[in-house]
Amino acid sequence: MQIRVAVIQATPVFFDIQKTLDKLEALIIESAQKGCQFVLFPESFIPGYPRKFTFGAAVGLRTDAGRELYKTYWQNSLQLPSPELKRIEQISRENNVYLAIGVTERDALNSSLYCTLIYVSPTQGYLGKHQKVKPTGVERLIWAEGTGKDSLRVFDTEIGRMGGLICWENYMPLARMRIYQQAPQLYLAPTADARPTWPATLQHIACEARCYVLGSNQFFSRTDYPEAYQEFLDEDETILCRGGSAIVSPQGEFIAGPLWDQEGILIADLDLDEVLKSKLDFDVIGHYTRPDLFDFNVNKL
């Protein structure tokens, strides 16, 4: 099977879910017009990754202004289900493309936020989600740990088996192994990591999983922050997130990207038979395992 995929490197309309959905729709339409059957968006594309934000918090201290900012962030995050999700399903259906979108998910019951990757089918609508099981560093202030329920899944679709992890979850070997156990053909790695070392992570995962790896990041400049949030930035900062999105083959070679210092859409034609052929000399869940020596178990939640 051959499929055409798109990886989006773009800037959301920061902290504005409706305008970000407008931009998301335009990017999907553009990708669909170029023949893409699947489109991946970065970590927390809705409503934007809050880089440099402190939310007025320090050890033993919270401020009223920080709480007000959290409220704004919460109000512009994606609830499941919601009219906004229905709109995403409609965009997927009208353009006949599968979608994986990094969002900040809000929980209507407990008011917590989660860093989430949602999956949408053009025929079935919302398929499911993966909640980040371990937010990194100060992310833990705003994002709760994912429950694990319905997470760490690979979805079997008409264009291949797809699943993955978010940002530094990809440095958790056991989390990666859980995805590998389900034999993904498309491994998704949306991120906010724009360090020059990140593309090597994507290459390592491709070589380890022997599948295609799609990495998607935002591009963010100072001018993309609304004036009200400029105070969080250092005076000399112009580029806040350089990007580094890429598409990597099952042999660990770059097919598209890495893309730096600009918005863009990376498009590649993928032959899923290459996933099979790459297993000749290495199969992390097959002939390259030693179940007599190692045992791996995932707790059922």
Rank of each mutant, 00 (worst) to 15 (best):
G125F: 00
E94D: 11
Q131C: 05
L152D: 11
E105Q: 14
R153T: 14
Q75W: 07
T63C: 09
G125N: 07
L117C: 08
Q124F: 06
T123C: 01
N170L: 03
G102D: 11
A100G: 10
G56S: 10
G66A: 07
T72F: 03
E68P: 11
G128S: 11
P81A: 01
K52L: 00
P50N: 13
C115G: 13
W143C: 01
E158H: 06
L80I: 12
A100V: 08
S92I: 00
W143H: 06
N76H: 14
K132G: 00
L127C: 04
F55C: 09
F53I: 02
D150C: 02
T54R: 13
S112E: 11
S82F: 05
W74G: 06
A65D: 15
L117K: 11
T147W: 01
K71D: 15
G60S: 08
T104I: 13
G163R: 11
N76E: 15
G148N: 13
S151M: 12
W74V: 06
S92F: 00
N96Q: 08
L113R: 06
L85T: 04
A144R: 13
Y114K: 07
L109I: 09
Y98N: 02
E94A: 05
F53D: 11
R140D: 06
K52G: 00
L99P: 04
I91W: 01
T147K: 09
V97E: 01
Q79V: 02
E145T: 05
K71P: 07
L113N: 02
E139G: 05
I118H: 09
D156S: 14
R67N: 07
L141C: 13
Q90K: 11
G148M: 07
I142P: 00
G148T: 12
Y126T: 07
K132R: 15
Q79E: 10
P83W: 07
C167L: 03
E158M: 07
Q131W: 01
L127E: 09
R87K: 15
R161W: 02
G164Q: 05
Q75K: 13
K86Y: 08
D64R: 15
